[in-house]
Design a binder for these strands. Structure first.
Length: 581
RNA sequence: UGGGGUGUCGCCAAGCGGUAAGGCACAAGGUUUUGAUCCUUGCAUACGGUGGUUCGAAUCCAUCCACCCCAGCCA
């Protein structure tokens, strides 16, 4: 009776997620604000590997553009060569492609615009909106004031245009040492917004740049570079995280104080399909909350420290929240994309539960992963009523619901292995597996009964002797029910493999909280367990090339693409199966 | 105690003055040769607190509280 109006269009199946950024874009489009264009950009600094937090931004920027027939640029925000390198550039490009996105046109670099940026700086100087300052970094800090007290003007604030121009030229020419001078915007040293207290636009750094080599010894700052780069690339919506909110007035100040015509000339309007006659509109910055995940350390700086100090083996260590690490761990790009969509986009700083990520991974892998059996902790079982040398090839489906994934042959022999945890001498409550004298189904094969438990002199179980009920292949035994089903692998024909079991790297929800001085204290000691002598069914092949499997009843696994060789196949546990025992 | 933000179920998150979507988690059933998947059902008289405006407020106003960000020549 509550189903009052059964009508309605309740099936808006492919509805895009509703969030404030999409609302804003819809509004802009309705007003034909940028001539109907949506052009975003993902602007990483190449100073580390991308992590799951970046994935959120990548997904947002690329999908919001794609959904509106727009474009998304990849632009390396490479204004601080001291921390950057080509290695990171390459890794980032690789990560984005793997995630499934294609940037618009060529890869961009802020350093592509160093020349234009320099010209714009001279424009600001000429308009008396920028000056060369001789204060040292320490002095500048003193002059800046504090959160509650205004700053005071630099003694160089009223240097003449001609002198500023000359000095700036000499900065560029390399006449001065690092830190001797800086170029600053002339805004307001008393502004309540500290970013507006004459922010530095250029600093002197006699250092090689990974893209421009030694062409420059002065480098523009982020604040100065980012807005202009956006304008040059004709970006419509410049999406970034909340901590840049206070920088927005500066973003706008710089753009609005530059000559609009020269800005338009410097931009690649034509390449963006901009229709002439449409009013030229500057890009605008909009901030959203960055992704936070519990039990996870985010932030390139922290991650780099973990790599450098050997807490993890590498940037692509499967325990790392980097895209490279997650990929190696066996997370799929689709799972990460779905996860990013499911957490939404908002302005409230929230902490997402790792369970959401795990759900997305299981959801995707359940469809994609071929089923296979692998015994992690082998216990030998002799099937006493099978002949020595008996080999029976059982044809099993690779997926319980998807026939298109085909079948594979699984050999049954007289000696097999089952997992040690699937046999108990004394049954715990609710135990559905093998007991002395009890029966259990071998997955995809027969029901067996445990007749004998063989132990060594100190009482350790050596092997089990079981008998096979040959009448139970593909059908239930007569007159009794066998509830338990366990996985198994031929001891004679199975492939020995190494399996790495991963768990969360940290034992606390907020490993990056400030009251944790040494994160070594909060590392999860069980983040990695390596098991040797595991036995996998032969169908897994040589283990080369990334493949996702479900080891039935154990979890999702993939072969480790770095450490696996045909002689020593290594599997990574991506994620365990849900266990509602 | 300057400025800028945010507060809707355990965790995310829709909602934009008309009487609380959805997902995760959790719980209970059902199916099952994976204790998986799948299916069904349940899960905020309530939207940080308090006042106010209104026929009607999570949505508007006032006020209070909590938390986050900013004093790099990092991004």
């Amino acid at each position: 009776m509550s189903d009052n109006t059964s009508d309605s269009n309740e099936a808006s199946v492919t509805a895009s997620p509703s969030n404030f950024i999409r609302h804003m874009i819809a509004q802009d489009l309705a007003q034909n604000k940028h001539g109907g264009r949506v052009h975003t950009r993902f602007p990483p600094e190449p100073n580390g590997y991308l992590h799951i937090g970046h994935a959120k931004s990548i997904c947002l920027n690329f999908s919001v553009a794609a959904d509106h027939n727009g474009h998304c640029n990849l632009r390396f925000d490479d204004t601080n060569p001291a921390k950057e390198s080509q290695e990171y550039v390459d890794a980032i490009k690789d990560n984005i492609t793997w995630l499934g996105f294609a940037w618009h046109g060529d890869v961009r670099y802020s350093s592509n615009y160093f020349g234009k940026l320099y010209a714009f700086a001279m424009q600001l100087i000429t308009k008396q909106l920028a000056y060369v300052c001789s204060l040292s970094a320490d002095q500048a800090r003193e002059y800046r004031g504090t959160l509650t007290e205004p700053g005071k003007n630099s003694p160089d604030r009223n240097r003449s245009v001609a002198d500023n121009l000359a000095l700036f030229e000499r900065m560029r020419a390399g006449e001065f040492a690092d830190g001797a001078y800086s170029l600053r915007a002339k805004i307001d040293m008393a502004s309540p917004n500290i970013n507006m207290r004459d922010p530095v636009l250029y600093r002197i750094r006699h250092i090689e740049h990974h893209q421009t080599s030694s062409a420059w010894c002065i480098y523009p700052t982020y604040d100065y570079t980012h807005c202009i780069s956006d304008a040059i690339e004709n970006i419509t919506h410049s999406l970034c995280t909340l901590e840049f909110e206070d920088h927005r007035p500066l973003y706008d100040w710089i753009l609005h104080n530059l000559d609009i015509d020269s800005l338009r000339e410097a931009s690649d309007l034509a390449a963006s399909g901009f229709k002439s006659g449409v009013k030229y509109v500057l890009p605008e910055q909009t901030e959203f909350a960055k992704l936070k995940l519990n039990y996870t350390m985010m932030g390139k700086r922290n991650l780099k420290t973990m790599v450098d100090t050997g807490v993890v083996l590498s940037w692509d260590d499967p325990r790392m929240p980097t895209l490279a690490g997650m990929r190696r761990r066996g997370f799929t790009a689709a799972a990460i994309r779905n996860f990013c969509e499911s957490v939404g986009v908002s302005r409230s700083e929230s902490m997402v539960d790792l369970g959401m990520l795990e759900h997305a991974v299981r959801e995707d892998l359940d469809q994609e992963a071929a089923r296979v059996m692998c015994v992690l902790r082998p216990l030998k079982v002799v099937l006493s009523n099978l002949a020595v040398g008996h080999v029976e090839q059982l044809s099993l489906p690779s997926h319980p619901k998807d026939d298109s994934m085909g079948r594979r042959d699984v050999p049954l022999t007289r000696e097999i292995c089952i997992d040690r945890s699937d046999f108990e001498e004394v049954a715990p409550a609710g135990f559905k597996r093998l007991l002395p004298g009890g029966e259990v189904r071998l997955r995809g094969a027969y029901v067996i009964r445990c007749d004998q438990v063989i132990k060594d002199s100190s009482g350790n179980i050596q092997e089990l002797h079981c008998s096979v009920d040959l009448a139970t292949l593909g059908k239930n035994p007569e007159g009794r029910k066998v509830k338990g089903v366990i996985h198994w692998v031929s001891a004679e024909l199975g492939l020995p493999v190494t399996v790495r079991l991963y768990d969360r790297l940290f034992s606390v929800e907020k490993p990056d909280s400030k009251d944790i001085t040494d994160y070594g204290d909060v590392l999860n000691p069980d983040s990695l367990h390596e098991l040797h002598g595991c036995l996998a069914e032969p169908s897994i092949g040589n283990g080369l090339g990334l493949r996702h499997y479900q080891f039935e009843r154990e979890g999702y696994f993939c072969n480790d693409t770095v450490d696996s060789t045909p002689e020593r196949i290594v599997f990574n546990r991506t994620i365990n199966l849900r266990d509602s025992k």
